[in-house]
Nucleic acid binder design. Sequence first.
RNA 1: GUGACCAUAGUUCAGUCGGUUAGAACGCCAGGUUGUGGCCCUGGAGGUCGUGGGUUCAAAUCCCACUGGUCACCCCA
Length: 416
Amino acid sequence: MKFRSIKGTRDILPDETERWQHVERVIHRVLKTFNYREIRTPVFEPTALFTRSIGELTDIVTKEMYSFTDRSEESVTLRPEGTASTLRAYIQNNLGEQGALTKLYYMGPMFRQERPQAGRLRQFHQFGVEALGSTAPELDVEMMLIALQIYSDLGITETRLIINSVGCEQCRPAYKELLTRELLKLKDRLSPDSQSRIEHNPLRVLDSKDEKDRAATVDVPLMKDHLCAECAGHFSTVQRLLQSLSIHFTIDGRLVRGLDYYTKTAFEITSSDLGSQDALAGGGRYDLLVKELGGKPTPGTGFAAGIERLMMVLEKRGGEVTPASRPRVFLIGLDAASRSWAFVKTCLLRKQSIPAETDYMARSLKAQMREANRQQASFVVVVGEQELQSGSAKLKNMQSGEEMTVSLDALEQSLK
RNA sequence: GUGACCAUAGUUCAGUCGGUUAGAACGCCAGGUUGUGGCCCUGGAGGUCGUGGGUUCAAAUCCCACUGGUCACCCCA
């Protein structure tokens, strides 16, 4: 019986983990400069947390969640996204009581049972950022800046920032009705998919990829033109701030977020280096969500970004290749006694934090040299009977080929 | 959930009209010096041609089913 990883999951192999670690370091660093603190929540939660926050009728909830009942008959779900868990933890641990504004970020695996394709996996990784406690449009802009800075620090500059406003509880219901009425008039010109969207998610019709849908809905009213005074003011402030910061953006009145909890600002960052799943990050404001999850009414804004998609862009761009870990020195023993000595010495060097390696296969000198070369060791020391007797050996610089005689006892000195 | 394409050494691939022993490159192992790597040369190991069935004198090659993968729709990061 040969086992395989579950469909839509994959191993991140050593050749890739170095790149991952590099990306993770950049994420942590940028978030530190923006004064956000990391939160780590469980990967599974009560199912109701997600149905409540993401929306009972969204596709994620109706057909993509990994849910099961545990042995105590409780329904639990592998998290499909990070915001719900983060807010649950925020509420449960009264984080809002420690200050007016709480800035959090998370990073880790998410789970959705979708058909895998380019840029879409069943277990995938996201990092996400949340700012809780303020309605300020500045924070909406801060979210966009964080994402853009992480990308540009990684050498990804060919991104597009798209923004929209999806309104609030004051203005959205009326607009939704208006839109539904207009869409019903066009119903027979729409694709079957869009026809069924009219009832349960009319906003979705607007960002259909179907050319006919696009054509049929060119003149349909957009949310951004039917905002209440407050939402309109908020949206224009966001735009003004972006302009002050010389950030390029485009307004797309058809941009819709897939999760129900968004209000006012919605944004997306896309890359043309990706396939049809071209969103690198997406987010927006969610002023009602904390209350919806049982907390005190608390405004919030945030975004989530896919790490695998980021990796795809990095690879395509040939982004900086982080150097593989290399031994500083490779110790070669020529006979049983010398190999034994080499192993012990290797361990002692490591104890002093000097990356050292030796041979475990009792191989020939030639084979060991080849191995040292393959591993790109900076130095090699060859030890045999003579060296053990005299207590000194030749230290070979593998780049220049130069050799110098060194004391075996003081080897660490020569390697600093 | 729907559709299209694909599946041959560890990896990337070639394999003609169905034809007898399935190849290449890279990688791996060993040798070319007796105590020195890379480049070069020589040799070697490594394959249930995804699985099962069918057609045929003969199947990696044609047909069917299954499994897996990829891409797109859908959805979304």
